[in-house]
């Protein structure tokens, strides 16, 4: 399968840069997979798991806040948080969920509350998915 250049960038550093076969991105309107030669495309991402497949290896990272840009030069994902799942303890995610919960409660108007609720839901789904994934792996 054809490879394409992929970069995962967080504000603090370049997290991943290399040639990959497929990347699955948690888009705001649903997960989508990107293969080589994808049409030019920009999407906001929601909190979730980003899966990188290349060279027979699969890497999973938790990403939050940002967007993905697929173009002729390959795929670039900009995320405010990007942590490999192995480094993300269950406590950290639980803390994020708690914070998000508080954010929802603090929201002053409906639009903000709706937006924050979406974030919270996405975080919960991710936590559940990671847990399920962890159980099958062991």
């Amino acid at each position: 399968m054809a490879n394409f250049p992929f970069e995962l960038v967080s504000p603090e550093k370049l997290v991943y840069s290399g040639s990959v076969t497929e990347v699955v991105v948690p888009g705001a309107e649903g997960e989508f997979g990107v293969l080589a030669g994808h049409a030019p495309f920009v999407s906001v991402i929601k909190p979730g798991v980003l899966i990188i497949k290349g060279d027979g290896k699969v890497q999973k990272l938790f990403v939050r806040g940002g967007f993905a840009e697929a173009g002729p030069q390959g795929l670039t994902v900009l995320a405010e948080t990007a942590v490999p799942l192995a480094e993300l303890g269950p406590g950290k995610l639980a803390q994020m969920i708690k914070d998000a919960q508080e954010d929802v409660e603090d929201a002053k108007d409906d639009a903000t509350r709706l937006k924050r609720q979406t974030v919270l839901d996405a975080l919960k789904t991710t936590a559940a998915a990671i847990e399920a994934d962890g159980r099958t792996a062991h």
Partner: peptide, 16 residues
């Protein structure tokens, strides 16, 4: 290139 946006441009801008 002309990009396709998801959700539409204004929503992305409001987020970005």
């Amino acid at each position: 290139a002309t990009y396709e946006y998801e959700p539409d441009e204004n929503e992305i801008l409001a987020d970005l």
